[in-house]
């Protein structure tokens, strides 16, 4: 196959179809973000999201979020059929605005965490997690 303009366009269309599903999921994630922030701008510092670069299994992926001074942290898996993962609300006796949990990821995707700070501002962190396909179904 030679790379003619027409072939390139066909390949482009194929790629669009192939990525149709994740794009829909991302739109759902954006809706959740808008609902959480009310459309406010998000700083890109002040929150840390720790997740593995490569997850051994998408069924059980350990993550940690930390945002000093946050009242609430929303976690989304943008590539899941439904993006919601968890919302952590920190009370007066939380020693730090940090939490860890284990989550399900349907495939390689961005995990996003957004903190709502006590002054009403927002901060966002994102981490790409590669989910491997097992060798043996065993």
């Amino acid at each position: 196959m030679t790379l003619t303009r027409r072939n390139v366009m066909i390949m482009g269309a194929g790629a669009f179809v192939a990525f149709g599903l994740p794009m829909r999921a991302t739109a759902a994630a954006e809706d959740r973000i808008a609902e959480f922030t009310g459309g406010a701008a998000m700083a890109d510092s002040g929150i840390t999201l720790t997740a593995p670069e490569i997850a051994e299994n998408g069924n059980t992926v350990p993550i940690e979020v930390a945002a000093p001074g946050a009242v609430e942290i929303l976690v989304l898996a943008t590539g899941n059929p439904t993006p919601g993962v968890a919302t952590f609300k920190f009370g007066p006796l939380a020693a730090s605005q940090t939490a860890s949990t284990r989550i399900r990821l349907a495939g390689t995707q961005d995990v996003v965490a957004i903190a709502k700070m006590s002054d009403g501002s927002f901060a966002k962190a994102s981490s790409n997690v590669k989910v491997t396909i097992g060798g043996c179904g065993g």
């Binding site: 069924n59 059980t60 396909i133 097992g134 060798g135």
Partner: peptide, 24 residues
């Protein structure tokens, strides 16, 4: 070596029963 995206072990069973992440 790898089998697809997974690691082939020696297939030892000293760790069984095993809690598997795939079926939790």
């Amino acid at each position: 070596n790898m089998i697809r995206a997974d690691h082939l072990s020696q297939g030892q069973i000293n760790g069984f029963p095993a809690y598997r992440l795939k079926n939790t």
